Amino acid sequence: MNQETYIEISRTSQYINKMRGFSVLIDGAEMGNIKDGERLRIDLQPGEHVIQVKVDWCTSQTLRFTLYEGEVLKFRCGSPIRGWKLLLVLFSVLGSSENYLFIEQEDEKKA
């Protein structure tokens, strides 16, 4: 049985990073670039992996996940900086650049 094994990442649409692409890093290697409001599919071998998104020198926290044969995992990424927090963006970037972006696994799994 030949089942597809991959992850899909969706990026929230946000004013703050509208014109910037995020690099998607898996196991430390850049696997693609995702633009505002887009989805990205990455075929992966089953096993344990680490995912992170990056723009310039700012990154998300790393997220460890296990991908099984024939499984599709979905992730969502973006920036938690919205609303009034936009006023503090410079302090956020300089103070803790690893919190400028986020990546999280969505609950839905399908084979």
Rank of each mutant, 00 (worst) to 15 (best):
V24I: 04
V24N: 04
V24W: 02
L25K: 01
L25W: 04
L25D: 07
I26M: 03
I26C: 02
G28P: 01
G28V: 03
G28H: 01
E30M: 13
E30A: 14
E30V: 10
E30G: 13
M31Q: 15
M31A: 15
G32Q: 01
G32N: 06
N33S: 13
N33W: 09
I34T: 01
K35V: 10
D36F: 08
D36R: 04
D36L: 06
E38V: 11
E38L: 12
E38C: 12
R39T: 12
R39E: 14
L40G: 03
L40T: 01
R41N: 04
I42K: 01
D43W: 00
D43K: 06
L44C: 07
G47Q: 02
G47R: 04
E48S: 14
H49W: 01
H49L: 05
Q52C: 15
K54F: 02
K54E: 14
V55I: 14
V55L: 13
D56P: 10
W57K: 13
C58I: 06
C58K: 07
T59L: 00
S60R: 08
S60K: 09
T62G: 05
T62Q: 11
F65M: 08
F65Q: 02
F65E: 03
F65G: 03
L67R: 07
L67A: 09
L67K: 04
Y68N: 15
Y68K: 15
Y68R: 14
E69R: 07
G70V: 06
G70Y: 08
G70P: 01
E71A: 06
E71D: 07
V72Q: 15
L73I: 10
L73G: 03
K74E: 05
F75R: 09
F75W: 05
R76Y: 02
C77R: 05
G78Q: 01
S79H: 04
S79W: 02
S79F: 11
P80I: 06
I81N: 03
I81L: 01
R82K: 13
R82F: 15
G83F: 08
G83H: 01
G83W: 05
W84T: 01
W84Q: 01
W84A: 00
K85Y: 14
K85V: 08
K85M: 14
K85P: 02
K85T: 11
K85L: 15
K85S: 12
L86V: 02
L86P: 00
L87T: 07
L87S: 13
L87D: 06
L88F: 14
V89T: 12
V89A: 13
V89R: 12
V89G: 05
L90D: 09
F91H: 04
F91W: 07
F91E: 10
S92R: 12
S92E: 11
V93M: 09
V93Y: 00
L94V: 06
G95Q: 00
G95C: 03
G95H: 01
G95P: 04
G95N: 02
S96Y: 00
S97Q: 10
S97K: 13
S97N: 14
E98N: 13
E98P: 00
E98Q: 13
E98K: 11
